[in-house]
Each structure stands twice: as structure tokens, then as C-alpha cells.
Nucleic acid binder design. Structure first.
Length: 540
DNA sequence: TCGCTTT
């Protein structure tokens, strides 16, 4: 790294505004000409303004600094398109009441007898119709939720009608509330204060401990004021629930799957009264590694009718098939385009030649003005740890590291530091890729190239949450060529640009075949050369 | 397809 970069970094070349509010305010937004017209009729049409999650994009403090002097190798200059988008964000961010959102988003709904979308949280106050406990509304308000997002308008009435559901909505658009709110209505009364049949009634299953923790916190906010018993399942809480009397008072358990399976096998838990199962990050939960556990959990829920709701921002066809096979007469909701990042996230690719070139490129990046905290993804725990160590040695302030190889306490502490704004540069792995909502994160760097579109979409979705803008930079080396085009396609589809030569790369399948054949490209300095090697590939 | 996650 350059001496100047080192100087800048070691004297703390960044500033961080700790006063940045974490809470987002949702704008009250009525467009009367659509009022009263909300019905499944507009299932595949354009979503009315008041249903669009972008309407609450009014939080504009801390506009990011311009990064127009990045000299990383292969870094693309800002294009006209980028400038346009920035204009849009600016306009969008300033609007409060009546202006049109810059991006129109569609909600597509498929299935039989789809319940009408709700217009507002206020509409849910019709207790005879929806049975949402009244204290939920004041808790919504005090948590800053004023109007529902797109996924919430569609999914809340579906879950209230006890229908099975697959819901796909982009990162940071409020999926958690879309299932938690109706769960409280379905449960209606805390088990502790009712004569209902006893036992756990709802499960929320998620892929990581940190995400379970975060959802538990959201759940507690909604539960305030009544005796709801919401359990973040852990070894400790599992022991606490080993007595049936304690279990009978539990309303909702939030957990990772293996913990639940362990408790089931130990006989410390039974799901005979479970009426609702939510799989968050559903495509991840239906991966081969989790599938057996999920089946065991679902199988243990042996009531005649168990409502299932699956949520994610991404759902590859294979996972969707698995999901649909588990559901009864399901409704499928898609907000925006499946497997696509939010347009508010500015995406770019940065060519870094090879692995040893990554660190200098990162230091160049960090030497420019940036908005901490920056979230940096690596491909392995070891690489996360060693990159963090190197940055600390170099003298960069407030570097942090979080992966599943750390102890529970180390993981919790790292998340806390992140939430308090103490981490400026957080190095992490896939464990942080899904669901985590650090509202201050404005910039994500893929230090190691993501292996799937889903990984890419979720990683960069750690920024641009709840209508804020965000920025995502992805490093790529010659070795990433087999996966480059599919990520480039996502970026292009979002309306951003990639180096033109990438669009001319051969089909990924051919690249993969070459990789599997272990044909090494000679040390390619100029990436454009790889185009010329198509013929050699064809001859194989 | 990898390593990631999961008592």
C-alpha cells in the first residue's frame, strides 16, 4: 500500500457521525385516487403508491461522500447512469407527501382466493375482521412503523386468513414484521393468560443465531405491554423449558433449526400444539444442510392443520419446488423482481487481478472518504480473521471481525459493537450475509467473490435498507471468471454498468467446464485476453 | 460448486 494511504489511515482518515439516527421514520402517504380500489384485481398490475415500500424513503441524513477518485485497478468511472440514479435518490429522499416514487414496484400474487391487500395498519384495527390485539398498534407506532411496506400489505392479510404462503421481497423491505404482526393476531392471547390448549404455538426458524437474536428483539417490541412469552431458543432457554409447566406458557419460539432438533430428540420439547411455522431465509433453510432438520421439525408439528409461511429475498426454482411441496394450497407473493437487489444499492465491479492485489485495492478504497461502518465479506473464516489482523497491523481504526468460528460471546460482542457504531470496518463471512439489519451500513465490499447470485443479493442487501441508499463494491480476480458473468448480469439487470468485456464472456457453463478440467490460463494481466481464449475452450 | 451455517 502507498505511504500516503498508510498516513491517512493511521491518523484516522475517516469521520463517523455517531449521532446518525438508527430509527427510520415512515412517511404518511396517501394517494386518494387509489383508495378503496385495493383488491386482488391488481395482483399483477402496478402497485398503488400507498402500497409501495419506496414511499418511506425519506431518510436522507448522511448522504454518502462522493468517491470519484478511486484509482483501484479496473475501477470504472462513474457513468451517466450512476449520476442519474443519484439524482433520483436525491429527489426521492426529499419527497415527503405527494411525489411519485422514482421506481415502480409490482406485487405479483398467485394462488386461489387471495385475500385483499391491506391499505394501512389502521385498516387492521377492525377487530371483528382481523383480530389484531390492540396493544400491537401502539407498539407499532412507538417502534416507528407508520405504514406497511409492499410485502406487508400483501402478506399480513394472507397469514391472518391462515393461508400457506411463499413470499419473496427484496432485502430490507420489512419481511420480519410481515410475519410477526399477523402471528400475534393469530395467537390472539398470551398463553400465560388464557385457558387455551397449552404448548408452543408458533415457530420462527432462521439460519443463524444472530438473525434469531435480531428477530427476537423485533418480536419483543411488538409484545410490549402484555404477558407474551417469546423465547430465543438456546441451550439455556432449552433447559429452562425442560419442565412442561414452563413450556405451556411459551407463545413463540425463535430458533436455528439444529437447536430445535436437539431439544426434540432430548424430549425437552414437543410441537404438538404448534399452529404456525415461519421459515425466514427460506431458500437457505431448504438447502441440503438444513433440509433434514427442517423436515424433522415440520414433521414434529403434528396438528391436523399447521400454517406455514416461507420468506426470502431470493428463491431459486429448485428451492421453490421444495417449498411448494411442503405447502397446502399456497399463495405466492413476489414483490419487485425475484433474485434482484434493490435499485437503491449502487453496484459496481472492481478488477483486482489476483488475490495478493486485493489488500492494496482495499487499502486504496479505505483511503478514500467512505461511510462507516463498511461491511466486508470474505469466503472463509480464516480469510476473515487474517484480513482483520492485517488491517489492524496496518493501523486502521476500529476493525472488527465476525464469523461462526468465534465463541458465542465473541459473536454477540461483535454484533453489539456493530449496533453501537463502534465498528468502522467489519470483516465477516456468509454468517452475516442474510437478514441482519445494521441500519447504519451504507457500504458493502465483496472482498471475495460470491459463489451464487443468492449470496451476492443477500450480501449487498446488508445496505440500502428501509429505503436508504447504499453502495456495493465487488472485487473480482481472474480466478472468479467462471462466476463473473452471472453476477454481472444481476448488476446489469439492476440498471448499473459493468466493463463491456465481461458481457462478452462465454457462458458460465463453459468456463466452469474449463475450470474443472484444470486448464490454467497463463498469468493473465489483461482480463480482455480471456475473451480471445474462447476458441481454445471450444476445441475441448 | 465452494465453504458457509446449524447442538
Amino acid at each position: 500500500m502507498s505511504y500516503e494511504a498508510f498516513q491517512l489511515l493511521s491518523r484516522g482518515g475517516v469521520t463517523f457521525d455517531k449521532s446518525k439516527p438508527e430509527a427510520v421514520l415512515f412517511s404518511k402517504h396517501k394517494d386518494t385516487k387509489h383508495n378503496g380500489k385495493i383488491s386482488p384485481k391488481l395482483q399483477t398490475g402496478e402497485i398503488p403508491l400507498e402500497l409501495d415500500f419506496f414511499k418511506y424513503a425519506q431518510n436522507n441524513q448522511g448522504k454518502r461522500k462522493k468517491d470519484n477518485s478511486d484509482s483501484s485497478p479496473g475501477k470504472r468511472r462513474k457513468t451517466d447512469r450512476d449520476e442519474d440514479d443519484e439524482e433520483d435518490i436525491e429527489v426521492l429522499a426529499h419527497e415527503t407527501e405527494s411525489r411519485k416514487p422514482a421506481t415502480s414496484h409490482k406485487i405479483a400474487a398467485k394462488g386461489a382466493n387471495i385475500p385483499p391487500f391491506i391499505e394501512s395498519f389502521g385498516a387492521l384495527q377492525n377487530y371483528e375482521k382481523y383480530a389484531v390485539p390492540h396493544h400491537i398498534f401502539s407498539n407499532l407506532k412507538s417502534s416507528g412503523y407508520l405504514e406497511p411496506t409492499g410485502v406487508q400489505t400483501a402478506c399480513i392479510p394472507i397469514i391472518l386468513k391462515d393461508r400457506d404462503l411463499v413470499a419473496i421481497s427484496p432485502t430490507g423491505t420489512g419481511k420480519t414484521l410481515a410475519y410477526l404482526l399477523p402471528l400475534f393476531a393469530k395467537l390472539n392471547t398470551p398463553a400465560a393468560s388464557s385457558e387455551l390448549p397449552a404448548g408452543v404455538r408458533a415457530l420462527v426458524v432462521v439460519p443463524t443465531r444472530e438473525l434469531a437474536h435480531q428477530i427476537h428483539n423485533e418480536c419483543l417490541k411488538l409484545a410490549q405491554g402484555r404477558k407474551w412469552k417469546i423465547v430465543l431458543f438456546s441451550k439455556a432457554s432449552a433447559n429452562a423449558l425442560s419442565h412442561k409447566a414452563a413450556r405451556d406458557k411459551v407463545d413463540i419460539i425463535i430458533s436455528t433449526p439444529l437447536r430445535l432438533v436437539a431439544a426434540l430428540q432430548e424430549g425437552n420439547l414437543e410441537f404438538t400444539n404448534v399452529q404456525h411455522i415461519v421459515l425466514d431465509e427460506a431458500d437457505r433453510m431448504l438447502d441440503a444442510e438444513f433440509m433434514n432438520q427442517i423436515q424433522e421439525i415440520v414433521g414434529a408439528c403434528n396438528r391436523s392443520r399447521v400454517q406455514k409461511a416461507f420468506f426470502s429475498a431470493t428463491l431459486p426454482a429448485g428451492a421453490e419446488k421444495l417449498a411448494m411441496d411442503m405447502l397446502e394450497d399456497p399463495i405466492r407473493i413476489v414483490v419487485g423482481l425475484k433474485d434482484t437487489p434493490l435499485p437503491l444499492i449502487a453496484q459496481s465491479l472492481t478488477y483486482v487481478a489476483d488475490d495478493p492485489s486485493k489488500l492494496p485495492s482495499l487499502l486504496t478504497y479505505l483511503a478514500q472518504p467512505y461511510n462507516p461502518p463498511v461491511l466486508i465479506f470474505t469466503s472463509t473464516q480464516t480469510r476473515a480473521t487474517s484480513l482483520a489482523e492485517e488491517l489492524v497491523l496496518i493501523g486502521i481504526s476500529n476493525v472488527d471481525c465476525l464469523h461462526a468460528g468465534l465463541s458465542h460471546k465473541e459473536r454477540e460482542d461483535a454484533v453489539s459493537r456493530m449496533r453501537r457504531g463502534e465498528s468502522w470496518v467489519m470483516i465477516t463471512t456468509e454468517v452475516m450475509a442474510r437478514g441482519m439489519d445494521f441500519k447504519g451500513v451504507r457500504e458493502v465490499i465483496n472482498y471475495d467473490f460470491p459463489m451464487t447470485v443468492q449470496s451476492y443479493v443477500h450480501r449487498i442487501g446488508r445496505t440500502g435498507r428501509a429505503g436508504r441508499e447504499g453502495k456495493a463494491v465487488t472485487f473480482f480476480t481472474d480466478e472468479d471468471a467462471p462466476y463473473l458473468k452471472m453476477i454481472a448480469n444481476v448488476i446489469l439487470q439492476s440498471g448499473f454498468t459493468v466493463p463491456e468485456w465481461i458481457t462478452k464472456l462465454p457462458k458460465p457453463s463453459k468456463m466452469k467446464r474449463r475450470q474443472m478440467g484444470k486448464i490454467k490460463r497463463p498469468d493473465a494481466v489483461n482480463p480482455a485476453r480471456s475473451i480471445g481464449r474462447r476458441d481454445a475452450i471450444k476445441q475441448r
